[in-house]
Amino acid sequence: MAEFKIVCEYPHPPRKVWRAVTDPALIPYWTSTGKGARAEGFEPVPGTRFRYVAKPVPGWRGIVDCEVTEVREPELLAYTWAGAEGEVPSHVRYRLEPVARGTRFTYHHTGFTGIGGFVMARVLGSVRRRMLTVGLPALLAELDDAGVLHPGAALRLKTTR
């Protein structure tokens, strides 16, 4: 079974990082570095079914079906992830920990099976690393400590559909 884990530290308080990664209005700013998925129907509440909707590409319909499985605000969010209809879901966990200079954020995606799962873990791992090292820091820099975009923020969303 394949998986990947990305650990980043951000010089921002956990509540601000939590807001950036769980507010549906903010999520598209950092997923795929501003051209990523909209979280439709998302709420950080166990049992919530939602989907990420992004621009389709050859071989992928542009939709990921998800269900929130665990929440401990502002330290843990877990959900299932199915990128194709009928696919056995994999599992995503966000863990936020306060550290001396801000927040340690761990993104862990598990449950990829077979050779296709191995390939998908490699592809998604590369994409997620860019989101978490480029996209999320850019968004966090544009938010106040309450997690609200500064007036006149330079970030712009690209159309996903």
Rank of each mutant, 00 (worst) to 15 (best):
A37R: 00
P89Y: 02
E70K: 12
H109C: 03
P137S: 03
R51T: 10
V119P: 03
T106W: 03
P74A: 01
P44F: 03
F42W: 13
Y79F: 15
A54H: 01
M131W: 15
L155S: 09
G59K: 10
A121R: 00
H109T: 04
A100C: 00
V99T: 05
R61W: 05
E40T: 13
R130H: 11
F42H: 11
L139D: 02
T103A: 03
Y79W: 13
L96N: 00
T69A: 07
G114K: 04
R122C: 02
C66N: 08
G41H: 13
G86C: 03
V119Y: 11
W60K: 06
P44E: 04
T103K: 01
D145R: 02
D65P: 00
T103G: 04
L124M: 12
G59V: 08
A154W: 08
T113M: 12
G36L: 08
S90T: 15
G135R: 00
A84Q: 09
E87H: 01
V64A: 14
E67Y: 05
D145G: 07
H109R: 00
P89N: 05
K35S: 14
R130C: 04
A154I: 11
Y107P: 00
E97A: 15
R72G: 03
K55D: 09
P98N: 01
G47F: 07
E85A: 08
F118G: 09
V123A: 13
G59H: 08
R49M: 10
R104Y: 12
P89R: 01
G62E: 08
F118H: 09
R95P: 01
L149Y: 07
K55S: 15
